[in-house]
């Protein structure tokens, strides 16, 4: 089933699935908000890999343009996520995810 001789589109998509799952595990299992943000970056990168693989398969540059935009948005999201994490850290002197409940109300 696992064909190792010549690399095809499926190998890249499988690798992208593996990366996406690892990112999802990170989000669900970890307590520290910053590691959760990193796992989200990991998931976004897995999607980028799938985009580039498909764009290479169909020989269309659209996939790569979308990856361009995903990178811009992921960077913006990381910047804002860390801004909130810093504010919580300065108030509660900790960065665990349970401290973020106080943001309610």
């Amino acid at each position: 089933m696992l064909e190792l001789s010549n690399i095809t589109l499926g190998h890249f998509i499988l690798l992208s699935c593996v990366l996406f799952t690892i990112g999802m595990v990170g989000v669900l299992v970890r307590r520290n908000v910053i590691v959760i943000l990193m796992s989200i970056e990991l998931m976004l990168n897995a999607v980028n890999l799938a985009f580039v693989a498909f764009s290479r398969h169909h020989n269309l540059a659209d996939g790569q343009v979308i990856v361009f935009f995903v990178m811009a948005i992921a960077a913006a999201e990381a910047a804002i996520g860390l801004a909130i994490a810093i504010s919580v850290f300065r108030k509660f002197n900790g960065v665990e995810i349970r401290l973020f409940e106080n943001l309610k109300g």
Binding site: M1, E3, T8, L9, G10, I13, L14, C17
Partner: peptide, 9 residues
């Protein structure tokens, strides 16, 4: 994905 492996040339 395993299907894709064989299908794509």
């Amino acid at each position: 994905c395993t299907y894709l492996m064989k299908a794509s040339n």
